[in-house]
Design a protein around this nucleic acid. Sequence first.
DNA 1: AAGTTGAATTGTAGCGCTACAATATGTGGG
DNA 2: CCCACATATTGTAGCGCTACAATTCAACTT
Lengths: 341, 341
Amino acid sequence: MTPPKTTMTDVAAAAGVSPMTVSNTYKYPERVQEQTRARVLECAAELGYVPNIAAGNLAAGESRVIGGTIPSMRNSSFYKYVLGMQNCANAHGYKLVLMLADTIEQERSAIEALIGLRVAGLVLVGTEHAPEAMTLLKRSGIPVVESWTPAGAMDLGVGFDTAAATRTLVRLLLKDERRQRIALIVHEGTGSRRFLERVPAFRAELAAAGRKDDLVHFAQETDGFGAGRRALDALLQREPELDAVICPTDIVAAGILFECSRRGLAVPDQLAVAGWGDYELAQEVTPQLTTVHPNASEMGAAAIDLLIRRGQGTIPAGYSIDTGFEILERASTRERAHRSP
Amino acid sequence: MTPPKTTMTDVAAAAGVSPMTVSNTYKYPERVQEQTRARVLECAAELGYVPNIAAGNLAAGESRVIGGTIPSMRNSSFYKYVLGMQNCANAHGYKLVLMLADTIEQERSAIEALIGLRVAGLVLVGTEHAPEAMTLLKRSGIPVVESWTPAGAMDLGVGFDTAAATRTLVRLLLKDERRQRIALIVHEGTGSRRFLERVPAFRAELAAAGRKDDLVHFAQETDGFGAGRRALDALLQREPELDAVICPTDIVAAGILFECSRRGLAVPDQLAVAGWGDYELAQEVTPQLTTVHPNASEMGAAAIDLLIRRGQGTIPAGYSIDTGFEILERASTRERAHRSP
DNA sequence: AAGTTGAATTGTAGCGCTACAATATGTGGG
DNA sequence: CCCACATATTGTAGCGCTACAATTCAACTT
């Protein structure tokens, strides 16, 4: 019932050295003579010893564990982002532990737990956090990187300019000057305001081109494909002449594509559809989706990198990295063929 | 630079009580008088104090953190599974920390890190683990639940009978007795053999019906939708009379659907397609996909529940829970309409 | 031969917390 | 008024580990 816990002292006894030598074997191998180290490791393996990281952190007053919260695992951008974080962390001898945080409240609880674990740093998504969490974060002095956000981080940040990406998408759609009624769909919900900064960018760009900028639709984040269907429904009701739509994610865009095919609406001839996120899906649907590629993996790596360098004191406060984006223009927004006049 | 770390002693001093009273306030609130507790919590909040879980675990020799490894975040079943775990853990006052483990080697490294953190228990996916990891797991005495697997767990297990699900799918396809050439696609790869147990079930059921059972295709797990395209290609080359196909995931099935639409192959009339996992996508594609619903959320909850109850000593070794599955029959495998004779 | 050096190893103390036993503080009975 | 008795609070010791200073010991100098 009670598992026989193997400690450093046990290993030391078995190897005939002092506990400190065992400690050094793991933490500063170069301080221990080759053959001593080999013997220690052998004994450790034989006893099934795994160093108690928590105790080590406590004694050393530092940690090589980085915590991350993720708001959703449902899209492939986040997957690449987490992979990027993990690879970078491992390459530097850090471990990444994740906690799921779908809502601000869950995030608060996760942040508290990770601070409790005394992680070396924290990577959060976005800049909206529970006020209590912000306070704790500041008090604890743990370095924090906020990701998927171009600016406005409390300290360190990585991300790309979503407003710029939105403007670029609008301009791309306006290349076909016959498109008069362009809509923007954004998510709203308990979780995140991070879509909302696209709205003013959208409006500004349309206004600059002398178009009406009233078609902004708010969709539930939890709805997935269904949100696309519902959004299209609502938008067509408001504006039967709808020309083009910019979606908050490729999932929503795909939902719209599916709905268009049900209704017999031709994409892109009758309706141009732009996605967001460059999910794998975007290349598989017909027509292929124009989308925003977020460099998720680079973003993840940059976040961890910032954290580690901040720990070394080589990064000033308030530093931010823009990991850029790329607009992938595909069939779903191609200009309509000009018919002979 | 050096963040002023607030400790229990600081809070105790501020509240004018002993450190033990602060400790009790958090761990055994009922032992502390109402007003004392209130004062302690107030001081803690003011100082931004968060208990050091790691130190607490060390002193108490126990932990309320559960570790989990996840092989992929790309599908919605895993999302629901993780949610199920997290909800159950939180409901019992436990925290769930996750590590990404796409390969056996990454899993080994994650297991080691989580043991190092001295988590209360571990939830792994599948039954294949690095031998070193298995040894450590046994030696450490940490309770382990293996999930997504019906049987063969080293100790505790949760999952459903994938062989039974496969047989049910085959029988469903055989209801249309004109279907002669049914194929099975499974994933193979560095990551997992967990798809392979479907093969003998597939063969046995077909053999029992007097059909040929040779059409088994192995696809790369990393390929996503593309795997569907490639698999269909390969299968049609081997057997132009292909009637039906059972896919390892809904993603692969959707890939096949997309490819069918490109080729002008009618689903289900010319080719029946069955998916696996009941992803959101399955209901959105046309035709809607027949699929296996894995009760992912229940599985996650059951895993954590087992772990906690094992910690309390109320679960015998070798205990397994079958969380069942459901076959969702949808348009992609409907019987072909009988033409009048 | 005594002194100097450097590498390898080892005590000591303490990280922040909790189990446990010990003490203080009240309450009512005899 | 003293004793039992429960309730509230507090020392003490130690969890497993590491920083740091102290020690050992062989290999060179001079």
